[in-house]
């Protein structure tokens, strides 16, 4: 099984060393973004799937470009 995970705490991810991680500077309880914000949640979900598909280096931590506030999602 191939895995991809979201992280909200980079230091813990660095210590645990999961194979593929998408890191977001978001509050706890908001791994996919804001409640009811489908464009945001879908974008993050698809980014994670894309990471799963493209990662070639074990232990990769991809930092999300999306800010918690003031970010527009199509």
């Amino acid at each position: 099984m191939s895995t991809v995970g979201i992280s909200l705490v980079r230091t813990i991810t660095v210590a645990i060393k999961p194979p593929r991680t998408y890191f977001l500077r978001y509050p706890f309880g908001h791994a996919l973004g804001e409640a009811g914000n489908r464009p945001q949640q879908t974008t993050i979900f698809k980014d994670c799937l894309n990471l799963l598909e493209t990662a070639r280096v074990p232990g990769i931590i991809l930092e999300s470009p999306y800010r918690w506030r003031g970010q527009r999602f199509a």
Partner: peptide, 19 residues
């Protein structure tokens, strides 16, 4: 909290390629 938290650590990175 992040600075003080002591997580479990791993030596190896598990890896299963997408096939």
């Amino acid at each position: 909290w992040e600075e003080k938290f002591t997580p479990v650590t791993s030596e190896a990175i598990p890896w299963t390629p997408l096939t």
